[in-house]
Design a binder for these strands. Structure first.
Lengths: 221, 221
DNA sequence: GTCATGGTTCGATCATAGTCGAACCATTCA
DNA sequence: TGAATGGTTCGACTATGATCGAACCATGAC
């Protein structure tokens, strides 16, 4: 009778199977595109578009347009907290989601959309910050470009887009940031081109060769 | 795509306005009957019955049948946690619910269904336990009946029902137990009959007269 | 410019589920 | 015993909203 907080409105946003699947897919804090989320929810992109509009309108998700992509992510920690409060009820699948991937190789290095995630991705991000390859605004410094040139990544390669050069992406297994953005993508592309690493089929695992891992370590010295 | 925890199922249970209103009404930990909850949700008792069945089936509520009444309450602390996680989203009404009633008179003494709640209700309950008016099973002792007789409550008055004589009810403002059950009702009735207290119109407040409060204190001596 | 791709809008369809009236069952009280 | 009250079941109605096909818009690549 008395109008309390409108918790039904938010609950309804989570109550749809497709939407909840998308939300669970974003629990790692990463931002995904609309089509990726559509496949997560097992629905067409039209339907996903409608769902995502609702979630953004309800301030459950936040969206960032970059080029022709739109990256969706959880609107904040309170959303993750809500999802966790809901997960308590399903006795089965309680633990695995926030503890990160089980397979060690996934923890070590995997692809996150188009850039490097996992321990090695976090190491790269940390190194770039600590050694002033990027400034406080995550823009590449003179010094940063010099070091990137060592493996063959040049400023000329940057597509003329307004997608940011560097972006921080929360790492699922590490719960720390790794490097995303166009530079993140370029670097990973170089790793592949230099045969330092390759993708395993049907998996997000990125497998570094012993030689590649050694060179990676040297590059960061 | 991958079947994670079925959070949509639980969310859907909260997603209905009538159901969420009922759940919010139970946030105080008290157990309410189906008809009370129906009025809380602003719906008929048939509809409420259907809603409540779903909530119990989903293990969001637990139910206890007593006579011709069925008392519903939250299934546990995890349910309250979920509701609170949802309330975070509604910027307006964040704080008041779990902090208890704002008006001091409501905190002091109010009616909870048919018995005394608030500070004085908790004091009564504590006193009865500490002074062995009731045993561990909350059944009245010889000594308890003697003291009740002082204010005119006699065993003969007890209706021959299987509603328990004494029941513990979690107090909203105090977050401790107060006395419910038939004896709780009988005692409050006596307070009214003795003019120790009266109900304020259109409110749950129970107003004790100075004389009544004094007598109440003496009775517990 | 053309083409491909990511996303949105619109409209029609369809299923789910909330709602209440009416009848019914169960318990309590007189 | 009958009357009153608390609660459930059943059936019919209705509204909401999820879904997808088709068309459309915007961006980026060539």
């Amino acid at each position: 009778m008395t109008h309390g907080p409108d918790i039904a409105r938010i609950a309804a946003l989570v109550a749809d199977p497709a939407r909840s699947a998308m939300l669970l897919g974003l629990m790692d804090g990463c931002a995904l595109t609309a089509t990726e989320l559509a496949s997560l929810g097992g629905i067409t992109k039209q339907t996903a578009s409608s769902h995502l509009a609702k979630l953004v309108d309800g301030e459950v998700l936040s969206v960032e347009a970059q080029g022709r992509h739109r990256y969706f992510k959880l609107a904040g920690a309170h959303v993750a907290a809500l999802l966790e409060a809901l997960m308590v009820f399903s006795s089965d699948a309680v633990p695995p989601l926030r503890t990160g991937p089980r397979e060690p190789s996934l923890r070590k290095a995997r692809i996150c959309y188009d850039h490097l995630a996992g321990e090695m991705g976090v190491a790269l991000y940390d190194h770039m910050q600590e050694n002033a390859w990027v400034d406080d605004g995550l823009a590449l410094t003179e010094k940063g470009w010099r070091h990137l040139a060592v493996i063959g990544v040049t400023q000329a390669e940057l597509p003329r887009s307004n997608r940011p050069q560097c972006r921080a992406c929360l790492d699922w297994s590490q719960r720390r940031h790794h490097l995303a953005g166009t530079v993140g993508k370029l670097i990973l592309d170089r790793f592949f081109a230099l045969s330092w690493a390759r993708r395993l089929p049907n998996s997000r695992i990125i497998s570094f060769s012993p030689e590649g891992e050694r060179r990676f370590g040297e590059w960061l010295r």
